[in-house]
Design a binder for these strands. Structure first.
Length: 862
RNA sequence: GCGAGAAUGGCGGAACUGGUAGACGCGCUGGACUUAGGAUCCAGUGGGGCAACCCGUGGGGGUUCGAGUCCCCCUUCUCGCACCA
């Protein structure tokens, strides 16, 4: 029970009892911890609400003010929903495996675990200073064997389902990091996190058959409440396209190849075929005459980066080489030349296409480059000028003539199927998920290899497979000089009684794929999660995090969840019912180059006294620097530190400003001065209750006071805050809270009931001061356990309203009328307004418009 | 190139289904109280004009009694995606 009853030991300075945020915030944080105020309730009869923040990676650099924005938002939801009678599951933990800790450990010569523990302590400390209402008893880290035992357990499940396999695949190898990266981690030929260059290699890797779930992952999006743009990104990432796959025979050989197309209806317009340079047939069908040309082209292609090959516009000039071979177009028996070209990707579809330049921009560009014929088969465009991709009747197409695209597709697919040449199929852009990394600081696989090199699952009883101690965490090399992961150094560990252990580890995504389930029963060592708890708490009702995870984490987690659902281990097909992305916080950055790629300067190094100017002056040198609002980041020298702001203004003021600065989904531009503003607001709240001269409660607070204006402000605030808990528009609800304080400050008397109701709706935003004032008003239990107040619509209505009176759409005056005025009364009052009457006298009144409660518009013909 | 979103005072941002544009806050100006104020309180604050009034939501058209909001065209910015046949 509550152990701290002493009144706030707020600092008395010169007899003034000011709001001492440091003492009060520390006091209540201790109180919440000591009383386990936010421990998840045991009762399972109340409605539940699972609010989750995206799992943070505890980096070494700690938090800047951009990080807690989402956590503050979810904290308001947690606290308010709790007061509304929900059982709230609010938890925080650490996605603590990962390369940065490993690199930091190498650098400092200590164990990654130690780095991780230190970073977690920093993060936890920073978050706890913000007064976030987490159930800290459920905290866990993915790098804890108690947790990763179950990550390995889930891997076993996926393996047993045939969803995990090893394959020799072309991978993104990062020489600097000595590891492979997932496609999603590579952009522009570089590792997205560090910018280190990435090259292509073929290696044996673990893969997940996420492609088997492509259709399910698409369908599941229909049932969730997610931002439209994120759903769209996932759909596009999965990239479903319907079409046909069929066979082309290579003339004069026994060979054939399959093509995939979404436009089988244009088959009569086929004038050549193209194989990807990597296509296995290339070697076999190239004629001697063309061998040199083909070899030359393959060399050229190899030299190109993936990006060079895949980031061209459709109508960009093409490259390629003729193989000398011809393919037989199945629909008309024509022999068409077979080319190779890097605009055809080996990794998509069948790695081969038939080309119909008349109706495909890429084929058109290629045909123009190499002087290949163009044959129109869909009327409606001018194929002598450009490819025509619109609809129209087919021509030059035998049995398809006259049909539109849709009908022609159906017809040709039926024909292909009847003749045993091919069939209608669906292709996805989604590729199988590369799941292994050559790193130390990740989950070991529960896999051993036999002497023949075949993988076997370790029995469940052998989990967790823990990370062995190493002298060094750097990658190593094998007897043939091939690169080996750091775990290969642990020879005793590798040679287990069950076989040779897998030395790759899982990627960082693994832990975050199911952490939301572990939070349900993190103390259980006998199960990954408790089935009853899963039934009660899942799905996550509100998931808040940045949109940078729109595809990767959210797609991977959904995939695992779907598999677990199929196995009957979870009861909902989707893990995250509602998703919300908080915006990225920006702040002014100063750089000596206009493109912001030069040297950055700290705000205190420059003089930017004219905020409307896009340039500033470096104080020391007088040089001009450019000013731009940029994402807050250490490297741009534009971060604000939450610890400093907590010290100066308090966590409550910081929390308020995080959300007051703008809509949650937009980031907003950070200004430390804004925190001073929300601090002033809290000072005024304080003075409503506390007489700063005596430290006693103010005389202003009385048992009852009849004040319609104050009631309206109060109930307006209650209503707005209550609604914002669902629509997450906290910036406007904070302004309603401010309005109440403005009215209350001016009022002679404020009823204690009104003040208490206000404190309750304020408490999710500024919990420390709300607790303190609540206690000063005589309450012994935490305000977090108080009931949420209801608003009274009757209190929101006003006796009289001000109507704007327009003449021809321009406001010419206002009139006070009773709130329940009828149309005739409103119009009469409007016409009587002196200034309006004068305008009316200038012309003929043609029309009167009355918008109840708003305005009157009188249309006058002058 | 394609797609999505955005553009409102000196600044961050309000404005429900078209209905008094600029709520709330920052900053600024003036005043009060003060030994002092970077504390607090009061008043003011889109631009122009003594005023009536005029002009104002990136630019240009349109619909409407009435447009920040709806439609068309354009500009700029942000964020995704990038030859997927």
């Amino acid at each position: 029970m509550s152990r701290i009853h002493a009144p706030a030991d707020a600092r008395r300075t010169g007899g003034v009892m000011r709001y001492d945020h440091e003492a009060i915030e520390a006091k209540w944080q201790q109180y919440w911890a000591a009383n386990e105020t936010f421990k998840t309730p045991e009762d399972r009869t109340a409605p539940k609400y699972y609010v989750l923040d995206m799992f943070p990676y505890p980096s070494g650099s700690g938090l800047h003010v951009g990080h807690p924005k989402g956590y503050v938002a979810t904290d308001i939801v947690r606290r308010a929903k709790r007061m509304m009678g929900f059982n709230v599951l609010g938890v925080m933990g650490w996605d603590s495996f990962g390369l940065p800790s490993e690199r930091q450990a190498v650098k400092e010569g200590i164990h990654p675990e130690e780095v991780t523990r230190r970073n977690i302590d920093t993060f936890r400390g920073q978050l706890q200073k913000l007064g976030l209402a987490y159930d800290w008893s459920r905290e866990f880290a993915t790098s804890d064997p108690r947790h990763y035992k179950w990550t390995q357990w889930i891997f076993r499940k996926l393996y047993e389902q045939g969803l995990a396999y090893q394959a020799d695949v072309g991978v993104n190898w990062c020489p600097a990091l000595q590891t492979v990266l997932a496609n999603e981690e590579v952009n522009d030929g570089k590792y997205v996190e560090t910018g280190d260059p990435v090259e292509q290699r073929t290696m044996k890797q673990w893969m997940f058959r996420i492609t088997e779930y492509a259709e399910r992952l698409l369908a599941g999006l229909d049932g969730v409440d997610w931002p439209e743009s994120t759903e769209k990104k996932q759909r596009e990432w999965i990239g479903r396209s319907e079409g046909a796959q069929f066979r082309f025979d290579v003339k004069g050989t026994g060979e054939s190849f399959e093509v995939f197309t979404t436009r089988p209806d244009t088959l009569f317009g086929c004038t050549y075929a193209v194989l990807a340079p990597e296509h296995p047939l290339v070697e076999r069908i190239t004629t001697d005459a063309q061998r040199a040309a083909v070899a030359g082209y393959l060399e050229e292609t190899r030299a190109k980066t993936d990006r060079d090959r895949t980031t061209q516009a459709a109508d960009a000039p093409k490259t390629g080489a003729f193989t000398g071979a011809f393919a037989i177009c199945p629909v008309n028996g024509e022999a068409v030349p077979i080319w190779i070209a890097d605009y055809v990707l080996a990794s998509y579809g069948t790695g081969a296409v038939f080309a119909c330049p008349a109706h495909d921009e890429r084929d058109y560009a290629f045909a123009k480059t190499f002087g290949l014929p163009v044959r129109e088969v869909v009327a409606g465009g001018d194929v002598s000028a450009a490819a025509y991709t619109g609809d129209g009747p087919h021509v030059n197409s035998d049995f398809l003539d006259g049909l539109d695209i849709a009908a022609a597709k159906t017809r040709i697919i039926a024909w292909l199927e009847e003749n045993g040449i091919g069939k209608g199929t669906i292709q996805y852009k989604l590729r199988d998920w590369l799941f292994s990394r050559q790193r130390y600081w990740g989950e070991p696989f529960p896999i051993v290899f036999d002497d023949a090199g075949n993988p076997h699952l370790l029995p469940e009883s052998q989990l967790p497979v823990t990370l062995p101690e190493l002298d060094e965490y750097k990658p190593t090399t094998g007897p043939d000089g091939e690169p080996l992961p750091p775990l290969a150094r642990a020879t005793d560990w590798v040679n287990s009684p069950y076989g040779r252990r897998e030395t790759n580890t899982m990627p960082q995504w693994a832990g975050s794929c199911w952490y939301y389930l572990r939070f349900l029963s993190p103390d259980r060592d006998d199960v990954a999660w408790d089935a009853e708890e899963e039934k009660y708490w899942m799905p996550v009702d509100l998931y808040v995090g940045g949109n940078e995870h729109a595809v990767l984490h959210l797609l991977y987690a959904r995939f695992w969840h779907e598999v677990l659902f199929d196995l009957g281990l979870v009861t909902t097909p989707e893990p995250f019912q509602r998703l919300f992305h908080q915006g990225m916080i920006h702040a002014l950055a100063y750089n000596d180059s206009q493109d912001m790629r030069g040297k950055f300067y700290y705000p205190e190094e420059v003089d930017h006294s004219d905020p409307s100017s896009s340039t500033a002056t470096v104080k020391a040198t007088g040089d001009t620097v450019f000013v731009k609002n940029m994402k807050m980041s250490k490297s741009r020298y534009n971060v604000s530190n939450p610890d400093d702001l907590c010290r100066e203004y308090g966590a409550d003021a910081l929390r308020l400003y995080e959300l007051f600065m703008g809509p949650l989904e937009e980031g907003g531009q950070w200004e430390d001065a804004g925190v001073a503003g929300t601090k002033r607001f809290l000072d005024r709240v304080w003075r409503l209750v506390v007489d700063e001269d005596t430290g006693e409660n103010t005389a202003k607070l009385v048992p009852s006071a009849d004040d319609r204006d104050l009631d309206r402000a109060l109930h307006g605030a209650i209503k707005k805050v209550t609604e914002s808990v669902d629509d997450l528009r906290f910036n406007t609800s904070i302004s309603e809270l401010m309005k109440f304080v403005n009215v209350a400050t001016k009022a002679e008397k404020v009823s204690i009931d009104a003040m208490e109701a206000f404190l309750r709706v304020l408490s999710p935003f500024a919990p420390h001061i709300a607790e303190e004032l609540w206690q000063r008003l005589g309450h012994t239990a935490s305000i977090a356990t108080a009931a949420w107040p209801a608003w009274d619509e009757a209190k929101l209505v006003v006796d009289s309203i001000t109507l704007a009176v327009q003449v021809n759409g321009k406001v010419r005056g206002t009139v006070e009328v009773p709130a329940d005025v009828d149309q005739a009364g409103a119009l009469a009052a409007a016409r009587a307004e002196p200034n309006v009457a004068e305008w009316l006298s200038k012309g003929e009144l043609k029309r009167e418009i009355y918008v109840p409660g708003r305005l009157v518009n009188l249309v006058v013909k002058m």
